[in-house]
Design a protein around this nucleic acid. Structure first.
Lengths: 229, 229
DNA sequence: TAAAAATATATTGTCGACACTTTTTGCTTG
DNA sequence: CAAGCAAAAAGTGTCGACAATATATTTTTA
């Protein structure tokens, strides 16, 4: 999925997309220092252009910059990831409740079709595919749009979702239980279709909550390991 | 209040702060097109430097840029402002509940002192002062920090708060009922002190909700005016 | 006269170069 | 040999210039 809908002709856009991909996939390791002249030569662009791309990556929370020191790829601790999921929980629930009020019938029907496709995709390659993750994002994006609150999409797309993507690419050990998730998605759509805002919000909150709790379990394991050492 | 804690020696930082101020105060009118060469000459910096500052302003949602067309100062409709308040409601309540669990006793005592100062400030110049608005932000900032969720501060500080500031500077007709707000703030601190997360979250939600509802009333008036024409 | 094409102007996108800061390297000294 | 200082290397901050694109103006034509 493209992070932006506009045609990506400008050089800065291209370099930005490439770098975003490289960071999310871990080709640029977390915390690694970014040398502007180095990367500029590597990607065959001027340093100014790369600088602009770095600004946008900073905007998307994928790099951090310190004055006179330079840029580094972001490091994402489990604690921070959990923090993000807390936010996603609050905003996702809110957006879902709004979507139950504001989505058109056509949009809801489309959402159903998306879940059917999702189901097929799960049947085909059981579990761990790339497309499922992106499909999951697609589902949430549509609800965000259906909420008719443009700012909530700005917030979640402007940094938070990219970090979650990065985590999933680099650490997603579990197969994210696709069947369970699908079932939850269907229930959410049911609630939206019935225009039950409160229920829709609640279900979405729980859906994200379970995802968060899985990560928290992972964190506990990690802490136990650290204590053991 | 400085938007960033780091020493603002770099030229880009300076120009960024100045432009942010100009936009929030309305000296650069909403929707007005930004001429890069013009502004660069006006502020005595190179175009590249100004460009970097514009990138950061875009990050803070204060300017919008279209490829090959240029940058404009953001336009904030009442609808969008209400959208922002919905987000603030969800995240503020969440953060406040977390703060009730995570704030230290010292932090809570400091918060109380802040409210006492706030009260004095209200008594001095009754109502409409600049410092009260910023004091209000200060209060919310501290709770955000107390939540120990760094991302929620990133989200609200990265765009949303600046837009609210802009609105208040340019349209804040009502004096924001300082006494009422202070009372609500005190109740919130009470709940935090008692470590009652649920209540603290609820009170914060209501506090922001009332602010939102005042804006919604304003919106209704505006719509009536439009119908009348 | 009005619409469309072509030119001219202004603005944004991209680049390479220089100045200043930080980090590394190498040398001196106790 | 270690610690501290000095010089060099690398890197970031800033700038002005050229190329590509968009906007405004003028000219042409129906």
């Amino acid at each position: 999925m493209k992070s932006d809908s506009r045609n990506t002709n400008s050089l800065t856009d291209t370099i930005f997309d490439q770098l975003q991909d490289a960071i999310i996939k871990g080709q640029l390791p977390q915390g690694s220092k970014i040398s502007e002249p180095g990367l500029a030569k590597q990607y065959q662009v001027s340093r100014g252009t790369l600088r602009e791309a770095l600004s946008r990556l900073e905007e998307k929370q994928l790099v951090v910059r310190s004055p006179n020191i330079g840029a580094s790829v972001v490091t994402l601790s489990l604690k921070e990831l959990i923090d993000i999921y807390h936010i996603r929980e609050a905003l996702g629930a809110m957006a879902c409740a709004l979507a139950a009020c504001n989505m058109s019938n056509d949009e809801i029907a489309d959402l159903r079709r998306l879940l059917d496709e999702h189901e097929k995709s799960i049947q085909l390659d059981d579990g761990l595919s790339y497309y499922q993750h992106e499909g999951e994002f697609d589902f949430h994006y549509r609800i965000l749009i259906g909420s008719r609150n443009s700012k909530v999409l700005d917030v979640l797309d402007g940094g938070l979702y990219q970090l979650i993507r990065m985590y999933r690419y680099q650490f997603s050990s579990d197969s994210s239980r696709p069947w369970q998730a699908l079932k939850e998605h269907r229930r959410i759509v049911d609630a939206i279709e019935e225009r039950d805002a409160e229920l829709a919000g609640l279900l979405m909150r729980r859906h994200i909550q379970t995802a968060r709790q899985r990560i928290e379990q992972q964190q506990e394991h990690q802490e136990q390991r650290e204590v053991g050492q």
